[in-house]
Amino acid sequence: MQGLTGRVALVTGGGVRLGRELAESLGRAGATVAVHHHGSREGAESVVATLRGMGGRARAFQADLTRAESIAPLVEEVERELGAISILVNSAARFDRAPFVETTADTMEACWALNVRAPYLLSQQVARRMLARGGGDIINILDVGGAFAPWRGYSAYGITKAALTHLTRCLALELAPSIRVNGVAPGTVLPPETMAPTVREALQRRIPQRRFGVPADVAEAVLFFLTGPAFITGQILAVDGGRMLESAPA
């Protein structure tokens, strides 16, 4: 698969978990990949080594996206080292769980800084360059717990993903026709290893496909937006095995 040959993709949080799969999938599809990380240097370098081993082009870039002043230098460094960014995947995120009455202001601020402000400012920096060059794609990694229905115990996380969902639609409207902006909303993918077996089994029974998702499911959805029909923008694709059907109106 070489559908992204010649394109430079910046993937935030690309050294671990879902971000790692996204970075590797884009590289396998032919993209040159800028693998962003904050503290996961070893993971990011491992992704780079994997892609280079397949004959691809990739490089790791470090930045603390919660610091607004770090965003413009990151974009400038990526474009200086790898070339013009034509794909941005906003994947880096915090996933904090706490009852609403116990959620601290610090947790709320930390979720907001990484899950909303960072993709807002990063998309802004990249979009300015994309517009000057004729276009590109922005993909936001959302969550069914923010895009479609609330999850108990994740108020801080959920409202930030809801905000990012709305931002996806705002940017699709404002940056058209040259930049397409879409979102992928995973369901339960990579559940915590500490999840009790009974909880895991009960959760799986609530999913019509009777399984949890895997990172490749999400990566394939991202590739659909990037290599599939060009007449799609502002859409949110749930990758949840049908779980949100339980929340749909009759």
Rank of each mutant, 00 (worst) to 15 (best):
Q2V: 09
Q2H: 14
L4W: 00
G6Y: 08
A9V: 06
T12G: 03
G13K: 01
R17Q: 12
R20D: 02
R20M: 06
E21R: 14
A23Q: 03
A23H: 01
S25T: 15
G27H: 07
G27E: 06
A29F: 07
A29N: 10
G30T: 05
G30H: 07
A31L: 03
A34F: 04
H36V: 02
A44D: 03
V47T: 07
V48M: 07
A49R: 15
A49N: 14
T50V: 14
L51V: 10
R52E: 15
G56K: 12
G56S: 13
A58V: 03
R59G: 10
R67N: 10
R67V: 11
E69G: 09
A72Y: 00
P73V: 05
P73K: 04
L74I: 02
L74M: 04
V75T: 04
V75S: 04
V75L: 05
V78H: 01
V78F: 01
I87M: 06
L88Y: 02
V89N: 00
S91G: 05
A92V: 03
A93W: 01
A93T: 05
R94K: 13
R97W: 12
A98I: 08
P99N: 12
V101P: 11
T103I: 08
T103P: 04
T107A: 13
T107H: 02
C111L: 11
C111K: 02
L114I: 12
P119Q: 10
Y120W: 13
S123D: 02
V126R: 00
A127T: 01
R128E: 14
R133C: 07
G136L: 05
D137H: 14
I138W: 00
I139K: 00
N140C: 10
D143S: 15
V144A: 07
G145S: 14
A147K: 01
G153W: 03
Y154C: 09
A156T: 04
Y157Q: 06
I159P: 02
I159W: 10
T160D: 08
A163G: 15
A163T: 11
L164I: 07
T165V: 04
T165L: 07
T168Y: 08
T168R: 02
R169W: 06
L173P: 05
E174F: 08
P177H: 11
S178N: 13
V181Q: 10
G183W: 07
V184K: 08
V189A: 07
L190R: 09
E193T: 12
P197M: 04
T198S: 14
T198K: 12
R200H: 09
A202L: 11
R205L: 13
R205Y: 01
R206G: 11
Q209E: 13
Q209C: 11
R210D: 13
F212G: 06
V218A: 03
A219P: 00
V222K: 01
F224P: 00
F224W: 14
P229F: 06
F231P: 00
T233R: 03
T233N: 07
A238S: 15
V239Q: 10
G241D: 11
R243A: 13
L245F: 09
L245T: 15
A248M: 14
